[in-house]
Write a protein that binds this DNA or RNA. Sequence first.
DNA 1: GTCTATAGGTAGATAGAC
DNA 2: GTCTATCTACCTATAGAC
Lengths: 206, 206
Amino acid sequence: MTLTETAGRARVLRIAAALFAERGFHGTSVRDIAVACGMRPSSLYNHVQDKNDMLVEIVGRYLDALDAVLPDASSAPGDGAARLDAMIRASLAAARAHPDEFLTLSNSWTHIRRAPELAGIVVRRDAGRALWADALAAGVADGSLRAGLDPGEVLRIIFSALHGSLDHRFDVPEAAAAPAGSADTLVALLLDGLRPRPEPRTESAG
Amino acid sequence: MTLTETAGRARVLRIAAALFAERGFHGTSVRDIAVACGMRPSSLYNHVQDKNDMLVEIVGRYLDALDAVLPDASSAPGDGAARLDAMIRASLAAARAHPDEFLTLSNSWTHIRRAPELAGIVVRRDAGRALWADALAAGVADGSLRAGLDPGEVLRIIFSALHGSLDHRFDVPEAAAAPAGSADTLVALLLDGLRPRPEPRTESAG
DNA sequence: GTCTATAGGTAGATAGAC
DNA sequence: GTCTATCTACCTATAGAC
């Protein structure tokens, strides 16, 4: 079937992403990936250039999806809180569309940052982060987000909360039955907190 | 000096913890640790049994600190929200007292879970998790925490938010100037959210 | 595009001199 | 308690037959 002309590479990358997401870059050997693909390690190199090449393409796939929605969300109409709401939903949607690619980025970050040939990934991630800092500052300025919280810490918490919403590695076996879920839990928790609001009216942007 | 009888081991573990926290277990070689200690890899084995032994002791140190405060916090007086508030503060205090040990646990979790000889760590962690699930359920039952959110996802978000509050690996260089900070940002964000509350009165337990 | 064979390097860990 | 020397196993990656 000529349809599978590049399916070999796509399949390899899909399987590699699953392993990277589960065990991290350093915890996954080229051998592991080859075995999971049903081939010898040497055969892998007919589909990919090297191990870092896989990482670049896998993570790039998620970053592409994020770039396609995050800038629009960050310039959504409304106040800073509405923009943040839209950005959380957009990021979660992109990550849910490419869960292994997203987790590969998160779980291999220290390697990415230490490898000079992966600097492109760091640049792209930092660019996205600037959008978040913008929306957060705008919300504080217009009064739609509370002031007095350390912006750097708030950003770290938002990012890791996004991660936690998706990463089930820490689940106990009994809790593993969680379905896909919507973005509402994460948005509700980050914007309105775990405590019930006195007024149940919702002000979030659609 | 007999005073330094075990200081060698303590120093090795301290340095190993810093490397594990920064690069993860798989990203840190025994050689790396030895070099950072100013000795040859073989000399390390006069202080520790093997690489996993270091991990067990490092992570155990954080879990000990957590065990010393989390059960008390989880049975704090007040409603479920007050208990959750106390647990967040207790966990953050334990993690801030042993930051490298806490990050070693987080960043090496996939290895810990896959290594049978590290099962003891998993057991201890799962036991702590049960306390969180308890307080969360109690808060939903007594109305101090909102209902309708997936408990498993809420727990994952709480844990990763704790992580994000401490882990600066994702920071851009300009944002790295963040000071120690208090637990207030994390507690405020998780319990009351980023949006300002209509009434500014605080109901949190002391 | 898969394989066998292997290179060249590094991993964790041990033996034994000092 | 540190060192040199070394072991075995595994790592990423390449060469070349089929």
